[in-house]
Amino acid sequence: MPPVLETRDLTIRFGGHVAVDGVSCAFHAGTLTAIVGPNGAGKTTYFNLMSGQLAATSGQTLLDGDDISALGAAGRAQRGIGRAFQITNLFPNLTVGENVRLAAQARGRAKASLLSLWSSHRDWIAKADHYLEEVNLSGVRDTLAAALPHGDKRKLEVAIMMALEPQVFMFDEPTAGMSVDEVPVILDLIRKLKADGTKTILLVEHKMDVVRSLADRIVVLHNGRLVADGEPAEVIASPVVQEAYLGQAPKAVEATHG
């Protein structure tokens, strides 16, 4: 099957520094790909290029075979790329329900005519309630987003992304800053999306136990370049990953993560 999302020789330079260096990679529906690498490898920058937060110096990003390189973040979101950030990206002074309703409304406005907008309002509220139930936040729908604990804010961000109904889900360190008790909730949400079988899911994550439990495929970046790509067991065991990403000898890696 043709890829849903693809980059071709994607490159960005900041002055004399090449943060992402000619990365070509294709992502397919029904597959969860973990993008890993050491700090400064270019993982988040690569995400920012694909989702439109940054404009590439050269190269292309394609969605369903169409070149979307000229589109910004809003245009790419409308085309079906959903992005969650390391730091939660919410409307803090709106309620939990309003945050999700606005996402459903933004998605609905792209499809609705002016005459149908008013009648659609109830549908947007119903969709918001549905996605809040999916992430177990129905009980706090009238709470201000700013008042939520960190773990619930991450769940709310997932609900917002689900309400946008994207083809591509991009998670940038979704468990960052979460307590041990909160992490399984987010991982279960991602597993639920993966079980759908029709979504393309990309995940930047430092925790190798999380990568092992979720990924169908691992892509490794190092100094902005793609250095490994394949099945998790094969990639994790490769010398280039153990040296460049984990920075440990094979036995030490196994003792730490086995």
Rank of each mutant, 00 (worst) to 15 (best):
F47Y: 14
E157I: 00
A70G: 02
V135N: 09
D216Y: 12
L189P: 15
T256Y: 05
P166H: 08
V135R: 10
D123P: 06
N39A: 00
V36M: 15
G224C: 01
V220H: 10
E157C: 08
A128G: 15
H17K: 02
P92C: 12
F169T: 07
A110N: 10
L202D: 05
R122S: 15
Y46F: 15
G177E: 13
D152S: 10
F171W: 11
L63M: 01
D172G: 10
M208E: 03
V253A: 05
E205K: 10
R212T: 13
L221G: 07
V20C: 03
R13C: 11
R225G: 11
Q105D: 10
V235F: 12
K155T: 00
H206D: 01
K192A: 02
W118S: 09
A255D: 01
L5T: 01
D172P: 09
Q53I: 09
R101T: 15
D67C: 04
K192M: 02
V211A: 06
V211G: 00
L62K: 02
G258Y: 06
V18S: 03
S113R: 14
G82M: 10
G224I: 03
S51A: 11
G258N: 08
E134H: 07
S213P: 00
L94V: 07
T175E: 07
G42Y: 06
T200H: 00
N223D: 05
A215C: 10
L71Y: 02
L49E: 04
S116R: 15
G82R: 11
A73K: 10
I81T: 02
G151Q: 09
V168E: 01
R13A: 00
M178F: 07
A56Y: 05
A145C: 11
T175H: 11
K207T: 13
A128I: 04
N223M: 08
S58A: 06
F85I: 09
H121W: 10
A34F: 12
H17E: 05
P232T: 11
Q242M: 07
H17C: 03
A84D: 12
L115H: 01
L90I: 13
D123G: 08
D152E: 14
L156D: 11
L63R: 04
N48V: 05
F91E: 07
L132T: 06
A74M: 04
M178Y: 09
G82C: 15
N93C: 08
K192T: 10
R191H: 09
K43T: 00
L189N: 12
G197Y: 04
P3E: 03
A56P: 04
R76E: 06
A70E: 05
F14Y: 14
P149I: 07
I35C: 02
E231G: 07
D188Y: 13
F14D: 00
E6N: 03
H17Q: 07
P166G: 10
L214Q: 08
G37E: 03
R83P: 15
T198K: 01
P3Y: 08
A147N: 12
G82D: 14
R212C: 06
I87S: 12
S238T: 15
D196M: 01
V180H: 12
T256C: 04
A228N: 09
R109F: 01
G15V: 02
K153C: 10
G224Q: 12
